[in-house]
């Protein structure tokens, strides 16, 4: 598996660390149903068989967080963008 880092280019899997599903947002801690929403965000997963947007950290490269679209059935990597949309402007990529 190789991940096309938008800053470093195509790099080997070993340079990256996995965090998981990128679609989970941190709930509002002040919300009325915060406890339930945090339970859902921390524990419940869609766990799709197919395309999944996920967070990978390029620790042995540019040390930025990437949002990678990958197929969990075939391990095909569709593409990767910076998880933080402002990362590209400061990097000069």
């Amino acid at each position: 598996m190789r991940i096309p880092c938008p800053f470093c280019g195509d790099r080997d899997l070993t340079e990256f660390t996995y965090l998981g599903d990128a679609t989970i947002a941190r709930p509002d801690p002040e919300g009325p149903d915060a406890a339930q929403r945090f339970y859902e965000a921390v524990y419940l997963r869609d766990n799709p068989a197919g395309l999944l947007d996920e967070l990978w950290y390029h620790g042995a490269g540019c040390r930025t967080w990437l949002r990678v679209t990958r197929n969990t059935v075939t391990h095909e990597v569709r593409g990767a963008v910076f998880a933080n949309p402002h990362a590209a402007t400061g990097a000069g990529a």
Partner: peptide
Amino acid sequence: DGYNSYAQRGNLP
């Protein structure tokens, strides 16, 4: 391997 997968095969690392 450390990433979500349904592939029944892993990677070389």
